[in-house]
């Protein structure tokens, strides 16, 4: 039997460190806001506290105290709303939008991380309660490693191949290889695109991947990430150099076009490879019978 103080301390520390590590592990451009950091660390701390005191409450025994975990779930759903709202508001002033799919994905991830924190705190404080603090710390480490692995998720690089595509014009139509991107009217703009633009062909590995990159949300996420790292030459009321991703309707691959501030094809591909596959866009046709039948 352990001192409840030690049990709670280990639980809270585990949860807090877990949240901290996951926050640092966060992908690109968010949360770069220092206040966002603080908010999420505090929320993580509260979540850790909730998870940690559950075990002593059970051991006491004070079963009613467990019901506040239900309250906690409600509370952390608010985090999702908070993220969704603030990122949604920020969209209004963005030239290149993140897209609602991406925002929803980020919001869900933030909510889920708090549940992971509660679980990590619960498990480590439980282990401390039953076996003593050395085991508690061991469980804590396993929990943190597991949650890092769980939150990693699939990346674009896992589901598709990338290669440079040649930009050219067919009349006034801008093409990447054989995919039409858009109609460009001004000769000066055409010259600029040919001189500075980059084209990339994204080949999906299978039918799942093909439908995933088909989703406009996933394409917007790719464009947003590339632009947020390498910049773009689009300006307010000068949308002619808008980066775009268009698919080849028959062959299923995607053509990506951008005029970046840093026209470095290697970097663009590296960024796209690290774009998370959004769970709202992720297709799972191959796990359905009809999908598999249609695929062969």
């Amino acid at each position: 039997m352990q001192d409840y103080g030690v049990v709670i301390l280990i639980g809270v520390l585990t949860g807090f460190v877990d949240r901290w590590v996951m926050l640092r592990n966060d992908y690109r451009n968010y949360p770069t806001y220092p206040h966002g950091h603080l908010t999420h660390l505090t929320m993580g701390f509260i979540a850790a506290g909730l998870g940690a005191v559950a075990v002593p409450a059970l051991a006491k025994p004070d079963y009613v105290a467990i019901t506040f975990l239900a309250l906690a779930a409600q509370h952390f759903r608010e985090i999702r709303n908070m993220e969704r709202e603030s990122l949604g508001k920020l969209e209004e002033t963005k030239i290149i939008k993140r897209g609602t799919d991406y925002i929803e994905g980020i919001a869900k991830v933030f909510e889920a991380r708090n549940y992971l924190v509660i679980l990590a705190a619960l498990l480590s404080s439980g282990a401390t309660q039953i076996w003593g603090w050395p085991y508690g710390i061991a469980v804590a480490l396993v929990c943190i490693l597991l949650s890092l692995k769980l939150m990693a998720g699939a990346k674009m690089g896992d589901i598709a191949d990338f290669k440079q595509g040649k930009l050219h014009f067919s009349g006034s139509l801008l093409m990447v290889e054989d995919v039409v991107i858009m109609n460009v009217g001004l000769p000066a703009t055409r010259e600029k695109i040919l001189a500075e633009g980059l084209g990339i062909i994204i080949h999906p590995h299978d039918d799942n991947a093909r439908l995933t990159i088909d989703s406009p949300g996933q394409r917007m996420a790719m464009i947003h990430d590339v632009v947020s790292i390498l910049g773009s030459k689009v300006d307010i009321s000068e949308p002619e150099l808008m980066p775009m991703a268009r698919k080849h309707v028959d062959k299923g691959y995607l053509a990506f076009f951008i005029v970046a501030n840093e026209p470095d094809i290697e970097s663009v591909i590296a960024v796209i490879k690290r774009v998370p596959v959004l769970e709202t866009s992720q297709a799972t046709v191959l796990s359905s019978l009809a999908g598999r039948k249609a695929a062969d």
Binding site: G171, S172, N183, G185, T189, P239, E240
Partner: peptide, 8 residues
């Protein structure tokens, strides 16, 4: 704030 398109 628009884009010029060529109808050829």
């Amino acid at each position: 704030g628009g884009v010029a398109h060529d109808l050829e």
